[in-house]
Design a protein around this nucleic acid. Structure first.
Lengths: 119, 119
DNA sequence: CAGTATCCATTAAGATACTG
DNA sequence: CAGTATCTTAATGGATACTG
């Protein structure tokens, strides 16, 4: 009786994501409230954890850490830890993330335009 | 005692969205699991509700309806109801949504490429 | 400095059944 | 055909305290 599979379609289920269409895959990787914003702040070069935190209005340390870890796991940011005291860690875009620059750039322009229209 | 405001940062809080940066605004409008996918299916012209449902793998009627209503409210899709029996409704992109075509197109290509790299 | 850990509240998403 | 209604689960967000 073809019982519909109950498997979640959640964004973190790797198998599900790999089997999805390309757009869904991309949305799962860089979608969500914070990821594009984080990437976009790194557009002009490396930033430290605290610089990112201060640059992104409204993000909590918890969310920043969670999202950075996922971006790192997915190969979108590179995390470098320096053996110093006090500790220093910085983040930078990987080549595959750099390819996305036009996307968030266009999205941002679209946002600016649409926002004006709505006002 | 500067009590930190408790206001949510949820995606549906219009005031919050309007005050956000342009990228955040855009992400709030077309982000989420389904919106870009719905828009992308409408790229080649009008589709009926059932056509959309069949075109989008894994979406439930509930989510399709919810997301279509939001897209309509935000001026990204136009909903047309025909006075027929059985009922017929179709959806199409508005000009402002058409401007986003390059974005989901690029995102999709990026997804295809990255997916291969990961495999 | 750059995080973790914990607890709790809110929101988004999903499964399923039902209807004008 | 084109949806609603209801219930449940998953994801996100926030507050606060703590640590190498």
């Amino acid at each position: 009786m073809g019982k519909r599979k109950k498997s979640s379609t959640n964004l973190l289920n790797e198998k599900y994501i790999m089997e999805s269409c390309d757009l869904t895959y991309a949305v799962c990787k860089v979608g969500g409230r914070w990821k594009l914003l984080i990437l976009c702040k790194l557009e002009n070069g490396k930033l430290r954890y605290s610089e990112l935190r201060n640059a992104i209005d409204g993000i909590t340390e918890r969310m920043l850490t969670l999202q950075l870890r996922e971006l790192e796991k997915d190969g979108l940011v590179k995390r470098t830890v320096y053996a110093e005291v006090p500790p220093r860690v910085d983040y930078e875009l990987t080549p595959i993330a750099i390819e996305l620059i036009p996307i968030w750039s266009k999205l941002s322009s679209w946002g600016a335009k649409h926002k004006k229209l709505v006002k």
